[in-house]
Nucleic acid binder design. Structure first.
Lengths: 235, 235
DNA sequence: GCGAATTTGTGCGTATGTATT
DNA sequence: TAATACATACGCACAAATTCG
């Protein structure tokens, strides 16, 4: 026997095809019967693979219509790892940004540790400021594992949003793990956020992982909350 | 036709039986073939119902052994809505408690709103202090929707943990939604937490829902974090 | 407006694989 | 080794939603 269940092997093949752009975001996959024929398996096996693709947010299925590759440029998916909302429940801090610095560098020890990188791996380190209704509300430092995204130059990155960027590079983001603490604003950050040093901030330390389980981005954000809050969901 | 799929009807029946204690926590359900016989459906239909029970953390299944009712008194499940951990990753703030006040009362407007109660519904309002390695670390105010848990007196509550309490009362908790903000310690809370007024605290405003979608408990906590953090997971 | 074609959703029954006891 | 129970896989039939002529 092979090392894993048939439906999981088919899942892997379908993920790979979608990553490579065989079926593009928003487009329909072949129907279940065609897929079953192609792989010489039963429709039930295809359905279990599609079940998992749906659970992992790679596709959506609509009875009577078909199975569609999800487009992670959509509002809902792009900001699925952004948990800060205002009183109306609308996302905060994903609006206009001010890029402060961005460069390619060798990963420092803590970056290597967080991103599970080797000694000479490179990262894209970005510092920026995010705004909400005209006010600077968040200071961010982020690190991208270049090799994981197949990135070789800064031009491929720019003022990115991680979810659409990952989709463009054929990487499916599966989950994120975030550590929250409270922190006093350092002098330099306070200046950038137009607030006083020592101001209470919410600190977000987030790691995003791909479907393969490897970390892709590490981001630390300092948030100056007004009437906003971090909305966590648990199951 | 009936209003929902067969496997969902069976899911409902199985949940109800487990809630009523027909199969107790830790015990095995009848095997799939027996269940199929009892309900006069195919094994595949039973399996879909069991899939959902497993996804909703009502049972766990072990190949070769059987399907078992989960015991929410276990460490892992009891604290699944407690997200604060220390550097070692172990839970914080679920240790010894100091009960401050506890009483049955008519729900106030904000409590009615949060818990989706009617005008004359009663709640159990509890204020307490939680400790970690001897230090007071968290001040909590919680509200229990009495009717939802079938509670009629304070003796049935006491210094409760919500997950085991809900299991005891035959309610399956499905999910929680929590709002996080930073807050300055009020004078009275600062005294209780042995810290200075104005100290930066993490404020947790949490609502827990049952499998039926109804809110069961509303809790607001003020946390004095040392080397601890709130660990959020996202998918 | 309606019916036919298409596609996913639900359900049945059976056979075989794999882990546990 | 044998019995038991869940996991995987196959194939078929029909229901329900969508689309289109």
């Amino acid at each position: 026997m092979s090392r894993s269940a048939l439906y999981l092997q088919i899942f892997d093949i379908l993920v790979e095809r979608i990553s490579k752009g065989v079926w593009r975001p928003g487009r329909a996959l072949p129907n279940e019967i065609e897929l079953a024929r192609e792989f010489s398996v039963s429709v039930g096996t295809i359905r279990k693979a599609l079940d998992k693709l749906e659970a992992d947010r790679v596709i959506s299925r609509l009875q009577g219509k078909g199975s569609f590759v999800l487009d992670h440029n959509s509002e809902k998916l792009t900001f699925r790892f952004s948990k800060i909302v205002d009183e109306n429940g609308s996302r905060v801090g994903e609006g206009p940004t001010t890029m402060l610095t961005q460069k390619i560098a060798l990963a420092k020890p803590d970056e290597r540790r967080c991103l599970a990188l080797r000694d000479h791996d490179e990262i894209v380190r970005t510092r920026r400021l995010r705004h909400h209704v005209g006010r600077p509300c968040r200071y961010e430092t982020s690190c991208l594992a270049m090799a994981r995204l197949g990135i070789t130059s800064l031009e491929e990155v720019g003022d990115y949003l991680i979810v659409p960027l990952a989709q463009k590079r054929g990487v499916h983001l599966a989950r994120a793990s975030e550590k929250l603490t409270v922190a006093a604003a350092p002098v330099d950050v306070a200046a950038l956020l137009h607030t006083e040093p020592g101001k209470m901030l919410l600190k977000l330390d987030r790691l995003i992982f791909g479907l393969d389980g490897d970390p892709v981005e590490w981001r630390v954000a300092l948030c100056d909350l007004r009437n906003e809050y971090y909305a966590a969901q648990m199951q």
